[in-house]
Computed example of a mutant assay.
Amino acid sequence: MDGPSDHLVIRTATAADEAVLADLDRRTWSPLHAVQPEPLPPYRPFFDGRHRPEEFLVAEAGGRVAGFIRLVRPTELDCHAHVRQIQGLAVDGWARGRGAARALLRAAAARARREGAVRLTLRVLGHNAPARRLYESEGFAVEGVLPGEFRLAGRDVDDVLMGRRLDGGGDGW
């Protein structure tokens, strides 16, 4: 992402992105952020009834997929319709440190606003300091911690709940 041909473009995923996003998801798997075991063949489909292409935003630079983010309603409850949740963010190694994750987060926030959301939430593992710093720099604050919620590689890891307002309002409701 160094020259004019590498301008970052954010778009909605399509079914045709299945293979490239599945490959990116597998290659970026890490115990730093994953609660699922490392993916091994035979691989599950990337898109399915619970993970639809329209839920994903894709970042491209120079014709290459740089990363993706998944944005969904946390539940189908009407009383929860004002919230969107990030449930997955991955950036390819060649695109890290070049603003792709930040661009995806901002695009997700913009989409959430267009959909009428006033809150954006996510969950991040307590030991994932780089991701937590990025989220904090984009206005997310820690709203709760589930201590030792996951046991990963024999170690208890906190589940950190983070959120931010999208409507410019204060912290109070």
Rank of each mutant, 00 (worst) to 15 (best):
V72R: 06
R73G: 00
P74A: 02
E76H: 02
E76A: 14
E76I: 06
E76T: 12
L77M: 03
C79V: 10
C79F: 01
H80A: 09
H80P: 01
H82M: 01
H82P: 05
V83D: 02
V83A: 07
R84N: 07
Q85P: 01
I86Q: 01
G88Q: 12
G88M: 10
G88W: 12
L89P: 03
A90E: 10
V91I: 13
D92I: 12
G93F: 12
G93A: 15
W94T: 09
A95N: 13
R96C: 05
R98D: 04
R98W: 08
R98T: 14
G99W: 08
G99P: 04
G99T: 13
A100Q: 04
A100T: 14
A101H: 00
A101P: 02
R102S: 05
R102I: 01
A103L: 05
L104M: 12
L105G: 06
L105M: 12
A107E: 14
A107K: 13
A109Q: 07
A109K: 06
E115D: 13
E115A: 08
G116K: 00
A117F: 03
A117S: 09
A117T: 03
A117L: 05
A117N: 08
V118R: 13
R119M: 08
R119T: 04
R119V: 02
R119N: 12
R119D: 13
L120G: 09
L120W: 05
L120P: 06
T121V: 14
L122H: 05
R123A: 14
L125F: 11
L125T: 06
